[in-house]
Design a protein around this nucleic acid. Structure first.
Lengths: 199, 199
DNA sequence: CGACTTCTTGACTGGACGTTCAAGAAGTCG
DNA sequence: CGACTTCTTGAACGTCCAGTCAAGAAGTCG
């Protein structure tokens, strides 16, 4: 039952966070183990020892990404009125691009990127992104239900359908933004969407 | 000025179309030259001779894809009332999934896939997808402008903003669909979007 | 026919990549 | 201290892949 041995010299959690950034900016296929070794200053064998192979490492990073995003989403939407907060959520990709606009900066949404690159070939990746999309719509639909009850949001559509539509919009915006972002056009589009929800 | 020599034994245009299908279903990185050789029944050297390297081959396929899509889009939206046609366009990914649901079937929108995989690293790919997005919004905005004038579509938003929003919705739907399609939810979301445009 | 051009074929090359492994280092426990 | 466990390091391995090339085949043109 000995749990002793030489202690790890790097911070596993912090290393995962930095790997997440790398995977986020370059994608799964375009990030080589060598890239990770260089960027994380951890040797190959140590990475394999701590995280298993490349695929498991990546999936772990994706899980962490969603965990952080979901926390942010839940906190942001727990407010009234809802629509300004929703606007913030939808324009998140735009503001991300404002903050870190150098090359190697995070690109789009990691869940969306994973969907494009690994789904549906990879079953585990598919499971993660499917669950993430599901949680997004659940959280947003719940918030919309409250806002409909409060008379802030139109009830001409079901909260579920509205939430599904909002998922498409965030993911579409994240994706299209990679090709260059016309901020004014993006904000106008998001405003049009949010206005469509107003009661 | 001799343009003679041994004639090509395969149909270049048809080969490009079949390569398009392969790239569409597997993506750029995951499609090897060997896959193309096997699927197209054309030897490596001949492919290189006819299309240049893999990247040029792929970009040519993407150009062809957009060319076909744009023709379809323009034709479909040249109608009145506009909203039913728009609904058709938006649900295109859903119906694609209905038609060809075997593995190896086209996945999402090739422009969107290219955006996720090659943009912004590849300048030429970025140029192609940027132009495609631009043309999509131009064509859709023009149609919306006509429909606004006809009183079919609300003029609370500019046609440009509405078109940009619709671009996000198609791309988002295409992407999210890869993870499995809940047709009812997708159609409800699209209907919510189209209803939001009604005057 | 014979010179010329282009296409076909498939073996070959060089490099990049994910993964493994053996030897040594750094701790803990009795 | 000595046995034991885990981590570190970096070289090595096997695989796969994009791209090249030389030799031959199949046409055209004078």
């Amino acid at each position: 039952m000995a749990r002793t041995g030489r202690p790890r010299e790097f911070d596993k959690e912090r290393t995962l966070e930095r790997a997440l950034e790398l995977f986020w900016s370059r994608g799964y296929g375009a990030t080589s183990i060598q890239d990770l070794v260089d960027a994380l200053a951890v040797e190959r064998g140590s990475l394999y020892g701590a995280f298993g192979d490349k695929r498991r490492f990546y999936l772990e990073a994706v899980r962490l990404y969603w965990q952080v995003y979901e926390r942010h989403l839940t906190a942001a939407l727990d407010t009234s009125p809802l629509l300004p907060a929703l606007r913030e959520i939808l324009t998140h990709p735009v503001r991300l691009d404002e903050l870190v606009s150098d090359l190697g900066a995070p690109q789009g949404c990691l869940i969306g990127n994973t969907t494009a690159e690994l789904v549906p070939q990879d079953g585990e990746a598919t499971e993660i992104v499917t669950r993430s999309y599901r949680r997004f719509t659940d959280i947003v639909a719940a918030a919309l239900r409250r806002a409909q009850a409060a008379g802030e949001v139109t009830d001409t559509g079901s909260p579920e359908a509205q939430a599904q539509l909002l998922l498409y919009i965030v993911q579409g915006l994240s994706l299209v933004s990679r090709a260059g972002l016309d901020r004014a056009a993006a904000l106008a589009a998001v405003d049009a969407a949010v206005d469509g929800l107003r009661a």
